[in-house]
Design a protein around this nucleic acid. Structure first.
Lengths: 211, 211
DNA sequence: ACTTGCATTATACGTTTGTTTTATACATTT
DNA sequence: AAATGTATAAAACAAACGTATAATGCAAGT
């Protein structure tokens, strides 16, 4: 069954699961908590998703896929547009980060819980999580890595990969912690300004690579 | 009981717990796995640490404290040494990052498992974990933030905090993923060269703040 | 009207969890 | 030598877990 032909209960489970996983981690939530929050029967998870692991897989894979098709497509368009010349560094980085940062409050679409969930998945590898990352995330990141690489041709392969890893690490870490920005900065930075966060990340990342 | 007057079993538990938590996360390990790996009786955990949560607390708090006293002390020394003038930016960053990056294989001292464990704690908040972070980690990071701030006086408070958060995020993310660098970079970067990783991180972070 | 098929519910099953209890070994002290 | 305090060990506990089964509701198709 496709993800956009979701039945009522199926969607309620997914939404509840995502927000709970976002807050307590993949290993910190029981099916009873999920079904209670979703207001459905316990057995509904096994009926609709076969088991807990498959629920997690579908949830994560779907979120990553939507984000990757968006940004990889945009990168391709940008490259096609500027035929011959380089796509500007800040444009590449913004395309890479935008669909991760820009989360709203719509409970079905990509939202704050989705963002935090992904932040967790990126740093909290589980047996099946690792496989998803190499299959779904790795190719897209290599794609952006190559695009950025052209702006720093003088760097050795190692030096570039280190810098790129740190930038991606900062991005992924931000996914897991943006929700808490206000508390951690004593109110200086906002939790609810993803566009501002994205703008700051872009200037941060550009500085890492520009000569 | 102090942490350096550890009995045999008490130490064996701590070592086994740290490596297991590092690999599977705080919520992904049972006391039976820990005691089995440590080769001690199940009840030994409750006897020596009261309960599972206190075991985690002691483990995490101790690691953070050692690291913080080291680097905060070194920063104070550096500041005292260069009376009047600024401590060089790269020196501040290296002092901040060194005790986190430089992990060896000594099973009792700060090692690769400790580093990965801390990386998890930094991004995987549990009820008692969050408290530890604000009590133990936050003050030290504010200290380094202020030191670095003097090298970027032109930045607005917000802009600076954003950049600093991204740098710290990259550092903490690296703690959780350094062990896997070789696989994720197709062998280009090494897992077992913490000094090299630290060097690369320093140049990365310096670029973020220098004008 | 009856049947078929899918969705939902209630309930039970076998494990595994953290913790507790009881018993045993072994020093040190009196 | 007896007693005491401490560490380890074996076993049992209730609770929570993921999953499986059986019963119920309910609309669509015949």
């Amino acid at each position: 069954m496709s993800i956009d032909t979701l039945g009522e209960t199926r969607l309620k489970i997914l939404t509840a699961a995502e927000s709970l996983f976002a807050e307590h981690g993949l290993n910190g939530v029981s099916l009873r908590q999920i079904t209670a929050k979703a207001g459905v029967n316990l057995a509904a998870v096994n009926y609709h998703y076969y088991d807990k692991e498959r629920l997690c897989q579908e949830m994560i894979t779907h979120r990553i896929r939507v984000i990757n098709t968006t940004r990889v497509g945009e990168l391709s368009q940008a490259e096609a547009r500027s035929a011959g010349t380089l796509v500007p560094l800040d444009e590449i980085i913004e395309i890479m980060a935008r669909p991760l940062f820009l989360a709203g409050d719509n409970p079905t679409a990509y939202n704050n819980a989705s963002r935090r969930l992904l932040g967790r998945v990126f740093t909290e590898p589980l047996p099946f999580t690792t496989e998803i990352l190499t299959m779904e995330l790795q190719p897209a990141m290599t794609r952006f890595g190559q695009a950025i690489r052209r702006h720093a041709p003088g760097l050795s392969p190692q030096d570039f990969i280190w810098r790129f890893s740190f930038v991606v690490g900062a991005m992924h870490h931000a996914m897991a912690t943006l929700h808490d920005m206000k508390d951690r900065t004593n109110g200086v930075c906002s939790n609810d300004d993803p566009a501002g966060a994205l703008r700051n990340f872009t200037t941060f990342a550009v500085r890492v690579f520009q000569r």
